[in-house]
Amino acid sequence: GCGTDTEDETYIIRLGHQLDINHPVHKGLVFLKEELERRSNGSMSIVIYPSSQVGDEREVLELIQIGSMGMTKVSASALESFVPEMKVFSLPYLFNNQEHYWKTLNGNVGKELLAAGQPYRFKGLGYFDAGSRSFYTTKKQVVTPDDLQGQKIRVMNSQTAVSMVNTMGGAATPVSWGELYTSLQQGVVDGAENNLPSFYYSKHYEVSQYLILDEHTSIPDVIIIGTHVWEQLNAEQQKWLEESMLAATDFQRELWAESTLESLEVVKKAGVEVIEADKSVFQESVLPVYESLKGSDLEALVKQIKSLGVEQ
């Protein structure tokens, strides 16, 4: 996953991720690479492999454990199968608002979650903004959870996501990402859910009529470095990387905000009807999800995060 280029003594870390090069997340990673090169005077660099060239999220995480990749950017939901604590981010309406979200990520809880990967050979370096996920549908206008009744909604491969949509009243339907565009077009599913830039970049807006901004989940992206690489770095190198990460986080957050606005504009222009949702109704519909957490490992963590929202 890493190595020294003998000719110019540059320490190289290999980073694979899933998004294409136009995505704001990729641009954030390029910024991280340039920042690291600048701070280390060219003695360190990152080779970025975009578009799943070296594997999808789950596979690259494995390659880090195996030792042939050094870094990655994954959605916290892809980390669930490796680091159980990460399931917390898939809970609907965990955060009250943006402030609560960033207060959690930048605070102790966020730091503890980044460290929670250590036993699994992952060190979390920081978070990238991945916005909030909302529903989009092809035929039926959805305003309240009741409208989801009987609608086949494609969800990510995650038990939490399946139970969330089913609890709201929809019918969570597994469709592979590659088959989703045509599945929406032909009507195999009636809708799906994602954040705005992905709704835009995947071109799903071409075949969807309605976007409902219910913002049910806010699942951050996590930048991961393999512990085998991290432990090889000396204190100075670790510091360069951490500082670059902080700078990249701010940069990417701004890019993300711009990209979200731009995406919203484009999909509106393309004729998608954008509906503002009464989030409180949706929030109420998912209360059973929290009921079912009683007594589970996540309960304490959820309480901790919720309390951060109350203090404001």
Binding site: E62, Q65, S81, Y120, N157, S158, P174
Partner: peptide
Amino acid sequence: VNLTYITFLLKQESPVLGIPM
């Protein structure tokens, strides 16, 4: 063997079925 060992050791589960990978 190493791949199987790592996935058992580090307790990776499949995302939906929840069986050890």
